[in-house]
């Protein structure tokens, strides 16, 4: 097992501490801010999900919101329309979005690059059209409103309490991704990504692996959907219109193919629309510009950029340390 670097542990501890303190800082009753904090959580999970697919396996999904929608609607329909307990509804949402992920897996086995990207866009369109038109099942264009907050043993959770649950879920997902990426399966994923023929010549069943990753990625996106449904207590198909592009932006800008990248990307890109409220209509355009600038100037994303800066700084510090020592040595001669 790979040893965890000290810097990784420190970063993680700092991030967790900030996340734990955040609700107290913004005020436990400030529901607007608490909801934004919750949105960090579900977007974080969504990015981890896309990162497994795009960053580690090289499969493009341009319609990742579809899986989030499937998860959110499965949860909403069961919980709101059929009165199913929230835990069971959440598990069902995971199962259904896992199954939807397997569909994507079938596409991944047959298609690559641009064709896969187009297929996933089409898949998103199809899912959202079905949701709008099948009103008897999904509430149609009216959506699903007044989805209940969670109640544990008769106690109704407040928004900030739900935030801590969402935070715990993010941490579990992050841990899961960490374990998966560093496992034998994770190595096979990366191997398949860079040389598919060689990986199958080493005995990796590429198609089986694609199905597995797509299923897991779908299920995680569905999980994000569940948190989304509960946080906003309202669902409608058009709410997801920008999510696919937004998730892609977060993953690319943060640094795909690294564990930290999506987390940084989520923090940056979820904050952006809140800061840019006056330009809300142009958000997609801004995402576009941000992606272009990132790809040109920080091809490895925020994470890669920060890491290079830190490496440069430490190299400089070392050089500085070495210099006076040399000078002193010369004087002594």
């Amino acid at each position: 097992m790979k040893k965890t670097a000290k810097s990784t542990v420190i970063t993680l501890v700092v991030l967790i501490a900030v996340a734990l303190l955040a609700p107290v800082v913004v005020g436990l009753k400030n529901n607007y801010m608490i909801n934004i904090l919750c949105s960090y959580c579900y977007f974080g999970i969504l990015c981890c999900s896309l990162n497994l697919l795009l960053g580690y396996t090289g499969q493009i999904s341009m319609g990742h919101a579809a899986f989030m929608m499937i998860g959110a609607y499965t949860y909403g329909i069961l919980n709101k329309f059929h009165g199913v307990h929230f835990l069971i509804a959440a598990l069902a949402a995971l199962a259904v979005s896992f199954a939807a992920g397997l569909l994507l897996g079938a596409a991944c086995c047959k298609l690559n690059a641009i064709f896969l990207a187009m297929t996933t866009v089409g898949f998103y369109k199809a899912v959202s059209t079905v949701i709008i038109n099948e009103g008897w099942l999904t509430g149609g264009a009216n959506g699903i409103s007044a989805i209940q907050k969670w109640t544990v043993f008769g106690y109704k959770l407040k928004n900030w309490q739900f935030y801590y649950i969402a935070l715990a879920v993010v941490l579990l997902v992050f841990l899961f991704c960490y374990r998966m990426v560093n496992s034998k399966t994770g190595r096979a994923m990366r191997a398949m990504c860079s040389a598919p023929i060689a990986s199958s010549a080493m005995g990796v069943n590429n198609n089986q692996l694609k199905f597995l990753v797509c299923g897991i990625s779908g299920a995680l996106a569905g999980l994000a959907g569940v948190l989304y449904a509960v946080t906003n207590s309202y669902l409608s198909a058009d709410m997801f219109a920008k999510v696919s592009v937004q998730t892609l932006t977060m993953t690319v800008v943060g640094g795909m193919g690294t564990l930290w990248g999506p987390l940084f990307g989520t923090l940056a890109i979820t904050t952006l629309p809140e800061l840019l409220r006056p330009f809300a209509d142009h958000l997609d355009g801004i995402y576009g510009v941000v992606i272009i600038l990132t790809v040109i100037f920080m091809p490895n994303g925020i994470y890669g950029f920060v890491r290079r800066m830190v490496q440069k700084a430490s190299a400089k510090a070392k050089a500085k340390k070495a210099q006076p020592a040399n000078a002193a040595g010369k004087k002594g001669e």
């Binding site: 190595r187 010549a201 990796v204």
Partner: peptide, 26 residues
Amino acid sequence: IIQVPEGRQIFSELSVHENLKMGAYS
């Protein structure tokens, strides 16, 4: 029966050590 494919097909994003580990995949 193990093949060394044409054009080497190294896993370029994996370290040398990880490449070797991939060999023992099955």
